[in-house]
Amino acid sequence: MRTIAQVISWLSLVLLLAPSVLFLMNRMPLETVKTTMTVATVVWFVSASLWMWNPKKQ
C-alpha cells in the first residue's frame, strides 16, 4: 500500500510539472495546463499524505 502510494505521488509530481513544460513548447493550451495541475495537486496531497504523514521509522 505504502509503495503504491509512493509511486502514485511521484507520478502526480510528473503530472504537475509536465503541462507547464508542454505549454512552454506550445504543445498544450493554458486552460488544460491549469486543470491538469489542479488534478495533480489533489492526487499529490492525497497520495503523499498516505506515506509522508507517518514516515517509516529508520
Binding site: 509530481l13 504537475l16 510539472l17 503541462p19 507547464s20 513544460v21 505549454f23 512552454l24 493554458l30 495546463v33 495541475m37 495537486t41 499529490w44 496531497f45 503523499a48 499524505s49 509522508m52 504523514w53
Partner: peptide, 17 residues
C-alpha cells in the same frame, strides 16, 4: 513537509508558464 516538493514544482511551473 508534504507540501514542500509540490510547492517547489509549482514555482518552477510558474516560471515556465
Amino acid at each position: 513537509n508534504i507540501a514542500s516538493p509540490w510547492m517547489v514544482l509549482v514555482f518552477l511551473a510558474f516560471g515556465l508558464i
